[in-house]
Write a protein that binds this DNA or RNA. Structure first.
Lengths: 153, 153
DNA sequence: GTATGTGCAAAGAATTTGCACCCGA
DNA sequence: TCGGGTGCAAATTCTTTGCACATAC
């Protein structure tokens, strides 16, 4: 398990301790790449393997994971902050964009480096140096566009 | 005041009443284009002209304004939902993008239609029809890039 | 052994809601 | 008149925090 070793080293490098709770939370997130989990959802899933865990530990750990850039924060404007495992260190660490269906509320991801052109323009015209971005595109997914989108209103 | 008439007609067209509170809230937002106000900030500003207003009315009104697409919702991940007056009905109703400085936390806006190319690609490759988007670019503004960015950490 | 981490419960903070009264159409 | 709108306070909901105990190193 290379990712876990990476994580353990990352913890040690930052003077943090490797605990069962932290490993359990990481495992839950690792098992669900591409999913966008809320703290409560992560809590529920971790409880299956580690029933004694507290919700506060989950909050504290995901905050730490986010600061260490192991996971990405995501806000779908439904009142929950969501998290997904990142792919730092792997091949092209392209940030993906999120496509959110306004009808069925499913979330798709889309990789594209068009943003780099935009970021260069901004650098040149405004002197603003972009280091990260979040792109959310709202619309109707293929399925909902084809069938009417009247169902889940 | 053309925008206010538009708003009054919009209310009537939706079977909603024109109240002093609603007008006062709209005026506050109209007076501050380009600003990103929280509910609490709007509340404070409206109170100057209309001291009896309640916070709940502000929440109810901005929610309504958002649904009527008179204002845009914006989340800068600081724990507050923010709102700004939109420019529907006016010339090119280009959505602008937000540039967020990670050092001084100022927010700049940037207009660009590069996203339309991206949206077309998505339409063609995934069949996902995009109707709206939100783009946030994080980085360091010109001023903070030039001087070190150590101040407001 | 000691500083860091954890679980619990309580506190906080943003937003929503119930309800009696008010007011625009 | 009368149904929608408002103000207030209470309720909800997500998240953070204080503290005593537990545990990694």
């Amino acid at each position: 398990m290379p990712k876990q070793d990476y994580f353990k080293n990352l913890l040690k490098a930052n003077g943090l301790k490797v605990t069962n709770q932290r490993i359990a939370i990481l495992e839950v997130l690792e098992d669900r790449p591409g999913e966008h989990l809320t703290a409560e959802e992560i809590y529920g899933l971790v409880k299956e393997k580690y029933p004694e865990i507290g919700l506060a530990t989950v909050y504290r750990t995901i905050q730490m994971l986010s600061e260490l850039e192991v996971i990405d924060k995501l806000n779908l404007d439904d009142g929950f902050v969501r998290y997904e495992i990142g792919n730092r260190g792997k091949e092209g660490s392209h940030h993906h964009h999120h496509l959110i269906c306004l009808n069925c509320h499913s979330v798709f991801t889309f990789e594209d480096d068009l943003l780099e052109v935009l970021e260069e323009r901004i650098q040149n015209s405004l002197g603003f140096r972009v280091v990260d971005h979040e792109v959310k595109l709202y619309g109707y997914c293929k399925n909902c566009s084809e069938h009417d989108y009247e169902e889940s209103r």
